[in-house]
Computed example of a mutant assay.
Amino acid sequence: MAVLELKEILKELNGKTVLKNIDFKISENQLIGIKCTKNEIRVLFDLIENAMLPTIGNIKSTFKSILSDRKKDDLYKFMTVGSYLKYFNKLSRNNNDLDFLMSQFSLMDSWHLSIKKVTLSQQKEFL
């Protein structure tokens, strides 16, 4: 049984689309990872917490309230490219071959660099 379900969510703010075609279900005790921009995740949690309504779509939940703790999380900036990818691989419970990914995404030269030291275009490749 889903404790949270978002169906065909569209959210526009100030005439701009922030979220589009968001569909997912979260079951009890299920772990998920969501990768979004800071603005997208802020809006998504505002929707989940009923602080705002979607422009289009439905949100169903089986809980009466939700507790969230929004902190500025810049942990990844203090990690290396390699440690970030290992962490995300473990967090997502994937068993990706990181050596293969390192070569496929040409990360060999930056694998041991701090994320804050690589260029923004390089960060977009793996963050």
Rank of each mutant, 00 (worst) to 15 (best):
W111F: 11
A2S: 14
Y87G: 00
V81W: 04
K11Y: 14
T17R: 12
M52A: 08
L31I: 03
D23G: 02
V43H: 03
M102T: 05
K64H: 09
M52W: 05
D23I: 01
Y87Q: 04
D109V: 07
Q30I: 06
Y87C: 03
L127W: 06
Y84F: 15
S83D: 15
I26P: 00
I41F: 04
V18S: 07
K124Y: 11
N39W: 13
Q123G: 03
S106C: 11
N58S: 06
N96R: 10
T80K: 10
K64I: 04
K71C: 09
I26Q: 04
N94Q: 13
L120A: 03
S106N: 15
L67W: 08
D69A: 11
M52N: 04
Q104M: 14
F63Y: 10
K116P: 01
Q123D: 04
L107R: 01
K25E: 09
K124L: 13
Y87P: 02
L19E: 01
I9W: 00
N50I: 03
I48A: 01
I66S: 11
D73F: 14
D46F: 04
F126P: 07
D46V: 06
A2C: 09
S61W: 05
L127I: 04
M108Q: 13
F88P: 00
F105L: 15
Q30H: 06
S61P: 07
E12I: 13
L91E: 01
L113P: 00
S61Q: 12
S68D: 12
K20T: 02
T62I: 08
L75T: 13
V43W: 02
I66N: 07
S65Y: 12
T80N: 14
S121G: 05
T62E: 15
G15E: 08
K25F: 04
K20Q: 08
K60D: 08
I22P: 00
F78C: 05
L91Q: 01
D99V: 06
R42H: 09
L127V: 03
N39R: 14
L44M: 06
S121Y: 10
M1K: 12
I48M: 02
E40S: 05
E12K: 15
I34L: 14
L4N: 00
N95L: 10
E8G: 14
I26L: 15
L47Y: 02
I59G: 02
N50R: 10
S92R: 13
K60R: 09
K71H: 07
M108I: 11
V18G: 07
N14E: 14
R93G: 04
F126K: 06
I56N: 10
L13N: 07
K90F: 12
I26M: 07
F126E: 01
V18I: 15
L6W: 02
I26H: 03
R70T: 08
R93C: 07
L75D: 06
F100C: 02
T37E: 11
E8I: 08
N95W: 11
R70H: 13
Y87N: 06
S68W: 11
K25L: 05
V118P: 02
F88C: 03
F126A: 03
F100A: 03
S61Y: 08
K16H: 14
K7S: 13
V3C: 12
F100S: 05
I115V: 09
E28Q: 15
L19W: 04
G82Y: 14
H112V: 03
